[in-house]
């Protein structure tokens, strides 16, 4: 089988570029720990409240340390449960200071949902039986739309809330 000289040059360049991409991605993933979320932590989808993090009183934003927060969310068609505020009203907006490190932990009680803070790298599939989690540093200020980006039924596009990252 014969390769033209120029085809050898092209394939060397092309494969070289692919290898370079993979090295960059691999360095980020394995050395800096920027893997996409994958923890394989399981939970009973019919009884998520049994897990400490998803008891009704532990839902929503919790400050755990200076500039460290945890956000626990229970997703269900077509709603994100962030718990209730002091007056007993459902929370549908959270505020996080810029630069804070936030651990998002999300589970679903029914079907598959998405959990995407639009315009950020917080983007996870939420599947029955697994805890989706991702720790990020919120570095951009502004108001973000947190929405379900995996089809979950006829109300899918009504499943959202807002996250404000303030200065």
């Amino acid at each position: 089988m014969h390769f033209h000289k120029f085809e050898k040059i092209w394939l060397t360049f092309g494969i070289g570029a692919l290898v370079l991409f993979l090295v960059i991605l691999g360095y980020g993933a394995f050395y800096l720990g920027t893997h996409p979320q994958s923890h394989g932590v399981t939970i009973d989808p019919q009884n998520v409240e049994a897990h400490e993090a998803f008891k009704p009183e532990n839902l929503g934003l919790t400050k755990v340390d200076e500039d460290r927060y945890i956000v626990n969310v229970v997703a269900s068609a077509f709603h994100y449960d962030f718990g209730v505020d002091a007056d007993g009203n459902a929370i549908n907006h959270i505020e996080i200071p810029k630069g804070a490190t936030v651990l998002f932990q999300v589970v679903t009680k029914d079907v598959i949902h998405g959990f995407n803070i639009a315009g950020t790298n917080v983007n996870m599939m939420v599947e029955p039986g697994y805890i989706s989690s991702m720790e990020v540093e919120m570095n951009q200020a502004g108001e973000f739309t947190l929405l379900c980006n995996e089809y979950c039924g006829i109300g899918h596009h009504m499943m959202y809330t807002t996250v404000e990252v303030y200065q």
Binding site: F21, L25, G26, G28, A29, T34, H35, P36, G114, N116, N121, V122, N123, M124, M125, N149, E150
Partner: peptide, 10 residues
């Protein structure tokens, strides 16, 4: 592209 997928997934 592995982790970069979070930027565009869904």
């Amino acid at each position: 592209s592995h982790q970069v997928n979070t930027l565009v997934h869904n």
